[in-house]
Design a protein around this nucleic acid. Structure first.
Lengths: 211, 211
DNA sequence: CGCCGCCTTGACCTGATGGTCAATAAAAAT
DNA sequence: ATTTTTATTGACCATCAGGTCAAGGCGGCG
């Protein structure tokens, strides 16, 4: 184990500053993109002088990496695993509910991730190629077993995962568009459950898991 | 009389150069984002000297506008309207098929659009607020009538539109991720029909339009 | 207190970037 | 053929971006 590596208590100023910076940076990267965001704009948004930013992070790309890493950690922690214990219906229900929840509660994370992927996943190639591919294959195999057992209709498992993925994240990534179309200023409490209900309903029925 | 009333009915040289530029710019904007793309990089990619780019487009933002406009035109033309003549089943089938087709055939358009929306639709606020809101309301009303007539299950029409929207576009925007997960280099011919089939199947069943 | 290592920050440097210009070539129009 | 309009392009410029630095502040520990 590494004993000297964790300056938890010692670096509380550092921890606080880094959090401020990463938070400001995320907003800036979303609004302006990686190339459009400037270290100065991140500094302004975080309330720290530019040189201070560069004291905590060697350079701009470093800040971006930190933002991405935080995003992936949050996701990993929030989604967890699909629980195979109670069959496909419960598994899909839980998965959809979890994903909708993060989309509404952490839209920024989803947006950063989406932009990164759209731009070719230059900083995440390794992640998608290894970790994520593994995850999808595993879950797809699970669905396939349920299909083989006659517990659900014969739908392509991989595309099913993509469907859940895309339809849930849409509410984060396209927030702006959705709000404008619905002529609203913000999402409300009810929206999470309403959307969860809607998607669960359609997808479960689509999989032949409810009449 | 010169009925070239429009000042933009210039020569074919202009048309060709503008096309080259817009094409190169789209790729550059996707890869680097608006802020990350440089006029020089667009010049290099299009094979024209930088000063020539600025001769055809007053400035960088102008190029971006042209790219966006071309994207919207393409979409408008390719999707057309949902045809209400033959009931909800055919309408949804056609809509899904059309959207999947563009996603696979013009992924760049979808990507540009997605990035713009994610970043807050700063250049498209007017478009989404008027044109698009109108479109969605109109189609939602149509679905509602079908629901009231008992021709389809009672699913929220607006969210249904979002679902079709997101699930189809996902194959364009997240191309990189999908290909990596499926361990492939490119999409193939069959993918369009396979995905269309999959989505149509699930969504129609989800709406109670097939068994 | 007094020391030491972390923090803070204004000033500074260098290269890149958006954009202009004027001079020249190529087309079009007459 | 001559004139007029459109294209092409290298050189140039002001600004701004990322990143460095060194001088000073601060906090905790003996």
């Amino acid at each position: 184990m590494n004993e000297t590596k964790k300056p938890n208590k010692q670096g509380r100023i550092r921890a606080e500053s880094e959090l401020k910076i990463i938070t400001a940076a995320q907003e800036e990267f979303i609004l302006q993109g990686y190339g459009g965001a400037t270290v100065q704009s991140i500094a302004d948004r975080s309330g720290l002088p530019k040189a201070n930013i560069l004291y905590y992070f060697k350079n701009k790309e470093n800040i971006y990496h930190a933002v991405l890493e935080r995003t992936l950690n949050m996701w990993d922690q929030a989604i967890g695993d699909i629980d195979p214990e109670h069959g496909p219906k419960v598994a899909i229900e839980k998965f959809i509910a979890a994903k909708v929840k993060i989309s509404f509660e952490h839209p920024g994370a989803s947006k950063i991730y989406a932009m990164e992927i759209i731009q070719g996943a230059q900083h995440l190639k390794e992640f998608t190629r290894t970790y994520q591919r593994q995850w999808v294959r595993e879950k797809a195999k699970l669905f396939q077993q349920w299909i083989d057992n006659g517990e659900m209709k014969n739908v392509d498992p991989v595309n099913l995962i993509f469907l859940i993925w895309s339809s849930t994240q849409h509410y984060a990534d396209f927030e702006t568009q959705i709000l404008q179309i619905m002529n609203r200023a913000d999402y409300e409490e009810d929206d999470i459950s309403h959307v969860t209900q809607f998607l669960t309903d359609i997808i479960l029925r689509g999989c032949g898991l409810i009449d």
